[in-house]
Structure formats: C-alpha cells, structure tokens
C-alpha cells in the first residue's frame, strides 16, 4: 500500500498525475508478459495486472480475449504470485496491483490470499465484482494490502461516502456505464463523479474504463489524480511491436504532466 501512496505523492510533487497502465498476466504468452511488464514499468507510476478468469463480466471484448488466451497459456493466480515473487527480487519500488474477479480470491481463501499477497509484496487489489456491500468478506483480512474500491457514474452519494471511508490508497473511478474498452471521449458523468469525490474527501482518484489517447489524458490533468489505460494497451500488444508500445506509453506518460 505504501508504494501506491508514495506514487501519488511523487506524481503530485512532480506536477503530474499518476499513469496506471494495465496488462494481462500470461498475455500474449507467459514469457512475453514478463518482457512487456518490464517495458510498462519504465512508464507506469503504478502497474495494474489483470489475472485471467473464465467469466470476466466487467470486461469488454479486448480484455475478454486476452484473458481467454492467457488461460490457454496456463496462466493462473498461483503463477502470477510466482511471477511477482521473482519480480520483486529486482524491483522493490514499482507499485503492483492485481485486478482479479472475486472467485479467484475465494477459491484459495481470502485469508490465504492476503497472507501470500503481503508476503510477496503485492501492493493492492482491484476486485471488479465486489461492491462495498460485500466488503466484510475481505476488508478484515487485507493487512497492508490495499483494497482499491470502485466507484461508478451510477454510484449514489450515500454509497460514495461508504466507499470513501473504506479506501486507503485511491479510488478507481469507472467513467462510463458499461464494460472496459476504448472510447473516444471522456464522459461528463465521469468528471462529475470525480468532483463528487473531491467534495467529500482528499483520497486520490484514478479514472478508468474507456481511456486511450494522450488528448483524453491531457484533458484530465488537474482534475483527477491518476489515469488507468487498459484495453488499448492490450490491443497494441496484439497488433504492434515492442517499440510501438514503448512510443505509445511514452506519449501517454508525457500527457500526464501539468507543464
């Protein structure tokens, strides 16, 4: 958790917002994934890693497909933990967050999940199918691992308050009604959600679902504390070379600066 908090503080100090790129564990292959994470770590302030699941109901077609391919490659939570354990031997500073559906946590047991996560240096988890009403299932067991709650454009002020109260690193703001996937514009409702959170709390906010371009990110600087880009990165990994991925990440990263 501390690594995440530090990342937001450092970005603020540098007059930037946090850049949070996403990639899928085991995609496009287990070996290539490790190489891609190394590239992504050069630009990401925090790196979000999706753990593949057979039924990703919050995801659009791009991440669904990546998740299916990753499962076929033999990727699973156990291997993701192994990967992180090795990764931490060389990189003790990049904040790593896992995005995974609740059944994967439930399967190994919530206590066991957080015990391993803490031991190997996982900083946070995003569980897209676990709303605040179900927080009792996980909250008491989290220890130093941050649970990053999601808030959506449909979240009422009453529930937003509960989400803010349980948040300790940042809030993942879902900018649209819908599933993950690139969209052309940043929704007004998304901006309104950020404002509603800012009105009641100083907790950092990061906007996700639908972001893909440097123009979108530039328009969010000064409004939100972080931006999450997922599907578009997966699309580029599928279609393009490492150097093109690097150019893309570099562009997005530079768009996060206030200067």
């Amino acid at each position: 958790m501390n690594r995440i908090v530090n990342a937001f503080n450092k970005a603020k100090y540098d007059n930037r917002i946090c850049f949070i790129p996403f990639c899928e564990f085991g995609y496009p292959s287990l070996e290539r994934f490790s190489e891609i994470v190394d590239i992504i770590c050069r630009y990401g302030d925090i790196v979000e890693i999706g753990i593949p699941f057979s039924d990703p109901i919050a995801d659009g077609p791009i991440i669904q497909k990546a998740s299916d391919i990753a499962i076929r490659n033999g990727a699973n939570l156990s291997k993701a933990f192994e990967w992180l354990y090795k990764f931490r031997k060389n990189d003790d500073f990049t904040p790593i967050v896992f995005m995974l559906y609740y059944n994967l946590v439930h399967y190994i047991g919530v206590k066991e999940f957080f015990r391993i996560a803490k031991d190997i240096g996982l900083d946070g988890v995003i569980i897209p199918d676990l709303p605040i009403e179900e927080s009792d299932n996980v909250y008491p067991y989290r220890d130093s691992v941050s649970i990053i709650w999601l808030a959506s454009v449909t979240t009422s002020d009453v529930r937003l308050k509960k989400i803010v109260e349980k948040s300790d690193s940042f809030i993942y703001c879902v900018s649209v009604k819908g599933v993950t996937g690139p969209r052309d514009e940043v929704s007004k409702d998304g901006l309104d959600l950020i404002r509603r959170i800012k009105n009641i709390s100083h907790i950092p906010t990061a906007l996700g679902f639908g972001l893909k371009s440097k123009e979108q990110i530039r328009s969010l600087v000064g409004i939100v504390d972080g931006v999450i880009v997922g599907s578009e990165i997966i699309r580029i990994i599928e279609d393009s070379s490492d150097s093109e991925l690097e150019i893309y990440l570099k562009e997005l990263k530079s768009a996060t600066s206030m200067l």
Binding site: P128, D129, P131, E134, S152, T154, T155, V174
Partner: peptide, 12 residues
C-alpha cells in the same frame, strides 16, 4: 447469495 456485481450495477 449476496451481491457480487460490478459497481455500476449496484444502484439498479
């Protein structure tokens, strides 16, 4: 039982 759904579905 319970309600294990994406946040956007909680209000509906």
């Amino acid at each position: 039982g319970g309600r294990f759904v994406p946040e956007t579905l909680m209000e509906p």
